[in-house]
Deep mutational scan, measured.
Amino acid sequence: ERLAYIADHLGFSWTELARELDFTEEQIHQIRIENPNSLQDQSHALLKYWLERDGKHATDTNLVECLTKINRMDIVHLME
């Protein structure tokens, strides 16, 4: 799945992406607590919560915009 692929590449950027996707610091902290050992797991959790929260509004376009804002064009190019 594309989101899994994106999550695998996010690394430390997942928190920046979370902020761009309008997650609160508290929500970010919660994701860290729930997935303490792996940045990859934290990234996967973030994208899963985003899909659950935004439903049909959780679009590739939205994700590309946010990834561009945090200067992760490498991931944007991987999505093309």
Rank of each mutant, 00 (worst) to 15 (best):
K56R: 10
P36T: 09
N71D: 09
R2G: 04
R19S: 07
W50I: 10
A4V: 09
E34V: 11
V76C: 11
Q27S: 13
R2P: 02
L3H: 10
F12P: 05
A4F: 15
R53Q: 09
E16Y: 08
Q27D: 03
G55P: 10
T68H: 15
V64H: 15
D8T: 15
L63W: 04
L67I: 04
L67M: 03
M73C: 15
D8A: 14
I33M: 13
L46R: 00
A45T: 15
S43P: 02
E25N: 15
T61V: 15
V76D: 04
R19H: 14
Y49I: 12
F23R: 00
Q30I: 08
D41L: 10
D22I: 05
K69G: 09
E52P: 02
T15Q: 07
Q40S: 08
D41W: 04
T68W: 03
E26T: 11
W50K: 14
H29Q: 11
D60W: 08
L47P: 00
R32F: 07
R53K: 11
Q27P: 01
F12W: 12
E52H: 07
E26Y: 06
H9T: 02
R2T: 03
D41F: 05
I70C: 06
L63A: 06
E26S: 07
D60A: 08
L39T: 05
L39H: 05
R72L: 04
I33Y: 11
L21F: 15
L63I: 15
H77N: 08
L10W: 02
T15W: 09
Y49K: 09
L46E: 00
L3T: 11
N37W: 07
I31L: 09
E26Q: 06
R19P: 04
S38K: 05
K48V: 08
Y49R: 06
K69L: 09
R53M: 06
G55K: 07
T24D: 14
I28N: 03
I31Q: 01
N35D: 03
I70Q: 02
A18F: 00
L47I: 09
Q27V: 10
L21K: 02
Q42H: 00
T24R: 11
N62Y: 05
R53A: 09
A7P: 02
L21S: 02
I75P: 02
N71A: 13
H57A: 13
Q30A: 08
I31R: 00
T68K: 10
E65N: 03
P36F: 08
H57D: 09
H9K: 03
L63Q: 00
H29G: 13
R32K: 15
E34C: 02
T61N: 03
L63G: 01
T15P: 13
A18W: 00
N62A: 12
S38M: 09
H29R: 06
L39K: 07
Q30P: 00
I28R: 04
I6R: 01
N37L: 08
K48F: 09
L10G: 01
Q30N: 06
T15D: 04
S13W: 05
W14R: 00
R19A: 08
A4S: 13
D74T: 01
H57R: 09
Y5N: 15
K69C: 07
A7M: 10
D22K: 09
E26W: 06
C66D: 02
I6N: 01
Q42T: 01
K56S: 11
F12Q: 06
R19G: 12
R19K: 15
Q30Y: 04
D60N: 02
Y49G: 14
H29M: 05
L39Q: 06
V76I: 14
R32T: 06
Q30G: 08
Y5A: 14
N35Y: 08
T24F: 09
E34Q: 15
L67C: 05
D22F: 10
A7L: 12
S38P: 00
T59P: 12
D74K: 02
I28A: 04
A4M: 12
I70H: 02
C66F: 10
N62C: 14
K56Q: 08
T24S: 11
G55Q: 13
M73R: 13
T68F: 14
M73T: 07
R72V: 01
G11M: 04
G11H: 06
A45H: 04
G55H: 10
Q40F: 02
T61E: 08
N71Q: 07
N35W: 10
V64Y: 10
E34G: 09
Q42V: 04
A7G: 15
T59Q: 13
A45L: 12
Q27R: 07
N71Y: 02
T59N: 09
D74W: 01
L10S: 01
T68P: 07
I31C: 13
K48G: 14
R19F: 04
E34T: 10
L21P: 00
D41M: 11
K48D: 09
I75G: 03
L46S: 02
Q27M: 12
I31T: 05
L47N: 01
E65A: 12
S43L: 04
N62R: 12
T24C: 04
R2V: 13
L10R: 00
E20A: 06
H44P: 00
F23Y: 03
E65Q: 12
N37I: 12
R19T: 14
I28H: 01
K56E: 15
H57E: 15
I70K: 01
W14V: 03
Q30T: 11
D60E: 10
N35V: 07
K69R: 12
S38R: 07
M73P: 05
E20F: 07
I33H: 07
T24A: 09
R19I: 14
L51D: 09
H57Y: 10
E16H: 14
M73V: 14
I31P: 00
N37Y: 05
L51I: 12
Y49T: 15
L51A: 05
Y49F: 13
L47M: 15
W14C: 01
D54V: 11
E34P: 01
A58T: 07
H77Y: 07
I75N: 02
T24V: 03
H29D: 08
P36M: 12
H57S: 14
N71R: 11
Q42G: 02
E52C: 05
E65Y: 15
E25M: 06
T59E: 08
Q30E: 12
L47F: 14
G55Y: 09
R19Q: 14
Q30V: 08
I75E: 11
H9G: 11
E52F: 10
N71W: 02
H57K: 14
N62G: 15
F12I: 13
H44T: 03
I28F: 01
S38L: 07
L10H: 00
E26L: 09
Y5M: 01
A18G: 06
R53Y: 05
I28V: 09
F12N: 05
Q42A: 08
L21W: 07
L17N: 00
F12Y: 04
S13K: 04
R53P: 04
I28L: 09
M79K: 03
A58C: 11
V76M: 07
I33K: 14
S13G: 10
H29P: 00
D22N: 06
C66W: 09
I28D: 00
K69M: 08
E25P: 13
S13Q: 14
V76Q: 06
G11S: 13
I70V: 10
L21Q: 03
I31Y: 02
D60T: 12
I6K: 01
V76N: 03
K48I: 05
V64M: 13
P36D: 11
W50N: 10
W14Y: 03
L17F: 15
T68A: 09
L51N: 06
A58M: 03
T68Y: 05
A58N: 14
R32P: 03
D41G: 13
T68C: 03
